[in-house]
């Protein structure tokens, strides 16, 4: 290796490290803040590396509910927001998984059907899905809310699932449609000729090849429904029914912000997505490449 190449590589690594540092800094800072004791969080000048480490903030979030119930009558003034953290977390998990299941299943079935059978208006569906994909949630949210109100569904997790299905389904549909169009039809036809039923072909031949597409659709849905704020804000009201994103805003209470709790919840909100991301990073690139870009 010539000196020039070595130098080039060093420069490249240095550049990448600098950019990565800048990009990751907000999250690193959130993490450091979350493990500092209260006095240190507000110390000026701020300490970059925590001087003393504490899990106090995490404990407050995880044990808040228990602590509140144990305190019983001694708790003077209603549950603090941290008492609901686990409820919020659970709500977000339920809603996210529910949405993902519905959106991926429905879109996979429909996309297969669209690419393998003839329908009137068959061509229009992917176009409409594309348009639906672009419609921002701010347009859906009010009419959806009124519909939910009429059905007496507001403040239920189910209303949230329906809301998220409505914003994720178009993209899933489109992605799966693009995917199935790329899957060669010959193997299926051979199996059909051999006398296998359509359902069996779908189950045994089509689904296994469709996994990368399904995973990409699922990741997209997971991200959207885990991260949404708007629907949660408008649809949900009771403290115990909120999703995480809306709930954590309660750590701002008008005259006081608990930055420690806020950053600890930020970390806990990000971790599930981070784990998922690490496991599925490859599919993300492949899936989005196939679906989002080539259409």
């Amino acid at each position: 290796m010539s000196a020039k190449i070595v130098l080039g590589r060093v420069a490249l690594y240095a550049l990448l490290s600098a950019v990565t540092f800048l990009v990751c800094f907000p999250l690193v800072w959130a993490f450091f803040t979350s493990v500092k004791p209260k006095e240190e969080i507000f110390r000026w000048p701020p300490t970059l590396w925590p001087e003393s480490w504490t899990l106090e903030n995490y404990r407050a979030l995880l044990e808040g509910k228990q602590a509140y119930f144990q305190a019983g009558a001694a708790a003077a003034s209603g549950p603090p927001p941290s008492a609901f953290f686990l409820d919020w977390f659970l709500n977000s998990v339920i809603v996210t998984l529910g949405t993902t299941a519905i959106s991926t299943i429905v879109s996979t079935l429909a996309a297969y059907s669209l690419t393998r059978f003839r329908f009137p208006g068959q061509r229009a569906v992917p176009y409409l899905a594309l348009v639906g994909y672009m419609v921002p949630s701010i347009i859906f949210v009010f009419p959806m809310f009124l519909v939910m109100a009429d059905l007496r569904l507001t403040d239920t997790l189910f209303s949230l699932i329906l809301g998220y299905v409505c914003i994720t389904l178009p993209f899933c549909m489109w992605l799966m449609w693009a995917f199935f169009r790329g899957v060669p039809i010959e193997i299926e036809e051979a199996a059909l000729v051999d006398g296998a039923s359509r359902l069996r072909v779908f189950w045994e031949i089509v689904l296994p090849t469709a996994w990368p597409g399904i995973i990409a659709a699922a990741i997209f849905t997971l991200i959207v429904s885990w991260n949404d704020y708007l629907f949660g804000r408008v649809f949900m009201n009771s403290m115990e029914n909120l999703p995480l994103t809306v709930g954590v805003m309660h750590f701002f209470d008008g005259t006081h912000v608990d930055w420690g709790l806020m950053m600890a919840s930020s970390v806990m909100m990000t971790v599930p997505m981070a784990v998922l991301f690490m496991l599925l990073q490859k599919h993300l690139v492949a899936g989005f490449g196939a679906g989002a870009v080539k259409g």
Binding site: L86, L90, I94, R152, L153, L157, F158
Partner: peptide
């Protein structure tokens, strides 16, 4: 719909 929601809630709650 309400029944489904309850089911969703119960199912999820069983986890925790």
């Amino acid at each position: 719909l309400l029944a489904t929601r309850r089911a969703a809630l119960l199912g999820g709650s069983a986890l925790a």
